[in-house]
């Protein structure tokens, strides 16, 4: 029972986690943006990258969300099989989202899909979206990844024929060209290949959380170079920085299928993690 945690402090921690994710980007993302600004030769694009970096400074200084689209709340939770919270974790996470919405504040973004009625507190059916994974051990790791609609709307999924692996790169490029400046490039592009219809999309979303400073290999590098040769650039105004990184994740799939999902992430690749329990 050593992993027991206090419900109130758990809610506080999750609300603080959301605050951190909304206000500060992870170091690897900031560094990638700085590198892009330094390398960009197109003056209009450079001015946009400078505005982004200035915006990050202001958000950090005044402790306000970096973007008014504070996203819908998505969590990735890895729960150790020996971790025993002693309370309903999902209910507590929901409480933390409502608390964070009121106190940071966050923009209320959750609406009924058909009536479009806004719930007012970022809670709704299936929102927050919490992805649970049971792992060995006695810790709970929660990653908050608030996702804005501008980039999410430009994402795509296609069920290819199994023989069409050679078309994957082109599908990603097509998705990026159709999106143009709308998803707020420079992008992080998550590509999920394999699994099933929904598993491919999940892989693509998880790929966005991978560190941007790790080297890109094989297909990742190939797609990355082709994307940046498109010339869409920061905010679709031209230049060489359409993407900061491409991350590919794969899973085995049915012999008769080849699902491919492309999850588009704007420059504000927001995510933050916290760990509970364990031996500390």
């Amino acid at each position: 029972m050593s992993t027991k945690i206090n419900r109130e402090s758990f809610i506080r921690s999750i609300a603080d986690l959301l605050r951190k994710a909304e206000i500060e980007l992870p170091d690897d993302v900031v560094n990638a943006l700085r590198k892009a600004e330094a390398a960009e030769e197109n003056q209009v694009a450079k001015s946009q990258l400078q505005a982004i970096l200035k915006n990050l400074e202001i958000a950090k200084k005044y402790r306000v969300p970096m973007c008014q689209d504070t996203g819908i709340m998505i969590f990735f939770a890895e729960i150790g099989s020996e971790f025993q919270p002693g309370f309903d974790l999902e209910a507590a996470i929901r409480e933390a989202v409502a608390l964070a919405t009121a106190e940071i504040p966050l923009r209320p973004n959750a609406v009924d899909p058909l009536t479009r009625k806004n719930s007012g507190n970022n809670l709704g059916v299936g929102i927050p979206d919490i992805h649970w994974k049971i792992v060995p051990g006695n810790q709970l790791k929660i990653t908050a990844a608030p996702k804005g609609a501008g980039s999410e709307n430009m994402s795509a999924l296609r069920m290819f024929n199994p023989t069409e692996t050679g078309s994957i790169k082109n599908f990603v490029l097509e998705t990026v060209v159709n999106a143009g400046g709308m998803p707020c490039p420079p992008l992080t592009i998550g590509v999920g290949i394999g699994g099933s219809f929904d598993a491919a999309a999940r892989l693509a979303k998880e790929a966005l959380l991978e560190p941007l400073d790790a080297p890109m290999e094989g297909l990742e590098r190939e797609i990355f170079e082709a994307v940046n040769a498109l010339g869409i650039g920061c905010m679709g105004l031209g230049g060489s920085t359409t993407a900061l990184a491409v991350r590919v994740k794969t899973a085995h799939c049915h012999t008769a299928s080849l699902p491919v999902a492309v999850n588009i992430q704007c420059w504000a690749n927001r995510h933050a993690s916290v760990v509970f329990g364990g031996d500390e």
Partner: peptide
């Protein structure tokens, strides 16, 4: 942000489209 497809004609002699850096909400 991001521009608008097929509105250049409607804007002609009337109005301009100004792009503001997407996501720069704290700055705004």
């Amino acid at each position: 942000k991001g521009g608008m497809k097929d509105v250049a004609d409607a804007l002609k002699n009337r109005s301009v489209y100004l792009a503001y850096t997407g996501g720069c909400a704290a700055l705004a």
